[in-house]
Every structure is written in structure tokens, then in C-alpha cells.
């Protein structure tokens, strides 16, 4: 048994862009462009980045959902791409997902109880009474009133809906849950409840999380390690405290500086100017470093050579020429 539950190597998701009358391939959107990382058992890996940087696509690709991906995703040592449909389905119970908007991730015509029971119906050949007991057990685990089992998604609050989504993800006792911005659509007071619940469940069921968010403060709160994504790539990957204390990549520093958080501003040091401009199109990334168009510390080499993700300190990775011993001053 290796230390890493998930191993990702050169994962890429490229959408073909089609145009014209004959729908010829006019280019490729590199939503996720060759990323590699591990997720250790029992840890929470936070993924932060701007909207459109490919973090959700990456989370879905890990679970083999959405458009086809290239590269290797190993779950508990098994390369998911080599599995047939039946084998993958048998593995599905061990890896689950919680979505951003629980109103969208629950079928509006199915009651909450049945939504939680769906994974059980799919994978467990249980009699109805046992399913019902399990549903009530799961509702208790996420602190939901069992009386809501007969309600429809639109009849309950956003926080309750997200609890249902979490209960559903927990139903098959997974090892790994991708939380795709699970609190972004919720009120601030509810966000804290849900995050606290996720933490409690992690402890109770020994879960491993991939926690995707654009909220740096939230990631700081929940994650053990943090990956920062920019335009389909990981630009920095480090333990949480190290990353927040001294960001190694100018993009991380800029993100921290943009957060409305005085502590983060102090940590960002000299860099006070938040980011300017927009994310370049993932269909036409700039030559060289992806971040060179917006980087406050851009150098000559950045426009020509793409910096690889290199280990700049034990367990700490950054993709920036500033940390290249041959380039950096």
C-alpha cells in the first residue's frame, strides 16, 4: 500500500474547437494541460485558481467524468484509463463527488430520500427496509432531519440541499471525494457549517479530499496541501502553511494579495498591486510561461521558455524561472 491514494501523471483534457460549415478542427482548448501530483491518504489537497483555470475539469477528469482525458490517473495503484466500463463502475463507490450548486446536482423530480438512496440502489442489492435505514443513518451523519426524506430539492434550503449531496456521496463509504467548490453557492454562515461537517466526516470516515475552491481563506482553513492552478497547469504545489507564509510563484503571491485579508497582504510582502488583465484564452496560451502576460516579475526568458514544475524545496513545487538556479539572479 503506497502512501498516495491518487497519483496523477501528465493529466490533460483538450477540447477540440470546431468551426465552419464542415466543423473542421480549428484548434484545441487546453482546459487541463499536463499536470502531475499525488494525493496522500487522509489528506485534503486544496486546489485554487481563477474561474476558467481548469480546476473543475481536472476534478472531473480524476473521476473519469466529462470529456476524455489523456495521461495517467492511478487510484490506489490502479490506472483508471485501463479499466473497462464494468470495472470502472465497480470502483465508482470508492470515489465520489460533491458539486458546487446542489440545486443543479440534485434531480428536481426526485425526493431527497431517493436521491440519497440512488447509489445504494445502483450498487447494493438491499431490500427496501435496509436501504431506508441506511438513508436515515446517512441523513443523521450529515445532521439532516429524516423528515425531509420525502421533500423535493426546491423545498429545502441551500445548506440542506448540500447536506443531501454530501450524504449521497457518502452512501457507498468512499475513500476519496472530489469537492468541487462545495460551498461557493451557499450563504457565508452556511459555508462554515458545511466545511465543519466535511472536516468532521473526514475524521470519522478516514476520507481523502480534493477540495476545489477559488476562496483562498476557505482552502487555507481546510487543506493540508495546496495546489495553485493557472491556465490548465499547476504553478505551485506546497504544504499549506509554507505556501501562505511565503508564496514561491508570483501568481500565488498575486492571488494572496488580491484576497481581502490583511494577513495575506502582509504575507505577500512587497507585491501590493493585485493582478491586472484577464486570463488568456486556453485555446491560445501565450508562448513561454503561461503567466508571462500578467506577471509582475516577468523576465526575458519567460516569453520564450516554459518553466517546468520543479521541486524548489522538499515537498514544495513551483513552475517559475525565478527558482531556476541557472536563470535566477
Amino acid at each position: 500500500m503506497s502512501e498516495a491514494l491518487i497519483e496523477v501523471r501528465d493529466l490533460a483534457v483538450h477540447y477540440p474547437l470546431r468551426a465552419g460549415l464542415l466543423r473542421r478542427r480549428a484548434g484545441v482548448v487546453r482546459a487541463v494541460d499536463g499536470i502531475s501530483f499525488d494525493i496522500r491518504r487522509g489528506e485534503t489537497l486544496g486546489v485554487v485558481g481563477e474561474t476558467g483555470c481548469g480546476k473543475s475539469t481536472m476534478g472531473r477528469a480524476l473521476l473519469q467524468l466529462g470529456p476524455p482525458s489523456t495521461g495517467i490517473v492511478r487510484f490506489d495503484g490502479v490506472d483508471l484509463a485501463t479499466l473497462g466500463a464494468g470495472e470502472l463502475r465497480a470502483l465508482r463507490p470508492r470515489m465520489q463527488m460533491v458539486f458546487q450548486d446542489p440545486l443543479a446536482s440534485l434531480n428536481p423530480r426526485i425526493t431527497l430520500g431517493r436521491a440519497i438512496a440512488e447509489p445504494l440502489a445502483e450498487h447494493m442489492d438491499w431490500p427496501p427496509e435496509r436501504q431506508r435505514d441506511r438513508v436515515f443513518e446517512l441523513m443523521a451523519a450529515v445532521r439532516l432531519d429524516p423528515g425531509l426524506a420525502g421533500r423535493y430539492p426546491h423545498e429545502v434550503s441551500g445548506g440542506q440541499r448540500q447536506r443531501v449531496a454530501i450524504a449521497r456521496a457518502l452512501a457507498l463509504e468512499p475513500d476519496f471525494i472530489v469537492c468541487d467548490e462545495p460551498v461557493a453557492a451557499l450563504d457565508l454562515s452556511i459555508q462554515a457549517q458545511i466545511v465543519t461537517l466535511l472536516e468532521a466526516l473526514q475524521e470519522r470516515f478516514a476520507l481523502t479530499y480534493l477540495f476545489i475552491s477559488h476562496d483562498l481563506g476557505m482552502v487555507r482553513h481546510i487543506a493540508d496541501r495546496v495546489a495553485v492552478m493557472y491556465l490548465g497547469r499547476i504553478v505551485e504545489l506546497a504544504a499549506r502553511d509554507a505556501l501562505y507564509a511565503a508564496p514561491a510563484h508570483p501568481y500565488t503571491a498575486a492571488l494572496l494579495a488580491s484576497a481581502p485579508d490583511p494577513a495575506a497582504w502582509r504575507a505577500a510582502g512587497a507585491l501590493k498591486a493585485p493582478l491586472e488583465g484577464d486570463l488568456p484564452s486556453p485555446a491560445a496560451p501565450p508562448p513561454g510561461c503561461n503567466f508571462c502576460t500578467r506577471c509582475p516579475r516577468v523576465m526575458e526568458i519567460c516569453h520564450g521558455t516554459d518553466p517546468p514544475l520543479r521541486e524548489i524545496a522538499p515537498g514544495r513545487f513551483a513552475a517559475c524561472h525565478l527558482h531556476d538556479p541557472e536563470v535566477a539572479p
Partner: peptide, 20 residues
């Protein structure tokens, strides 16, 4: 998303169609 959610559970296409 609820279709992706059903796929993530491993619901086969025919039941995604009939149920969702």
C-alpha cells in the same frame, strides 16, 4: 450536474435516461 452526479455513481446510460 445531476446527470454527472448520476454518472459518478456509476448509473448506466439506460437508467440515467429512465430515471433522470
Amino acid at each position: 450536474d445531476f446527470i454527472v452526479a448520476a454518472q459518478s455513481i456509476g448509473t448506466p446510460p439506460r437508467r440515467i435516461i429512465t430515471r433522470h
